[in-house]
Amino acid sequence: MSVHVTGVTKRFRSGSRSHLALDDVTLVMPHGEITGIVGESGSGKSTLARCLVGIEQIDAGRIDYDGSPLQPFLSRRHRYDARVQLIFQNPMSSLNPRMTAGQLIEEGVRRVPRARSADWRRSRVSELLEMVGLDATDAKRYPHSFSGGQRQRIAIARAMSVEPEVLICDEPVSALDVSVQAQVLNVLRDLQRQSGITIVLISHDLAVVRHLCSRVAVMFGGRVVEQGPTEAVFDSPVHDYTRSLLDAVAVPDPRRERAKLAEFGEYREFRQSG
């Protein structure tokens, strides 16, 4: 399912103050691709994610999935459209601590129309756990007994249980150590390759986005300042902000990093002497 965001505006009001969190955002997320959204804290990335799934109502503009808007009020019982799912940043607080991994995933599996038989549901839970690189026996364990990376993969399995067509991941790895963040990123990449699902990956880590996404949008102060194919945006950024963002990224290469720091040292000396 492709996602088209057109002229979306979202304003938060608190008392007499109001804050424009999304300012005329227009974006394309093509079907079956991973689109990255980068930008600094407060630039509106999470707000956009929440608008995409319908947790927040937008003030203006439209969000189309394959040409038509979400149908959040399909029925009184089901308030959200399960075709679009969201993964949150913090894997500890995004899973109910009182339910086992299996119960959490089964809840979603139940929503699928063919989930009549208990056997089918059970085998589907195992299948989902294995899809994210966990073991079927892990179904009996509670969230707190998993590591952060494993919990995040449970969250992915759960989101996938309702067979969504779009998966929105809001900083899915920024709470994780590098050693486990790679697990989660690989799961997302395999998911996109195997089930052809559309993924939106929000991250402040440009290397993660470059690694995984075919398209990228750069946000700044509630606006999208630049978007396009990842290669194009990263190799020849047009907007100053994008360029400064790319320059700032630290790379695990002592020589290059030292050169950057030395450059600043010279600049500082120059400023202090003059």
Partner: peptide, 11 residues
């Protein structure tokens, strides 16, 4: 957040 997650799942 986990309640929000449950809602988005469409429960």
């Amino acid at each position: 957040p986990f309640i929000e997650g449950a809602r988005v799942l469409g429960l």
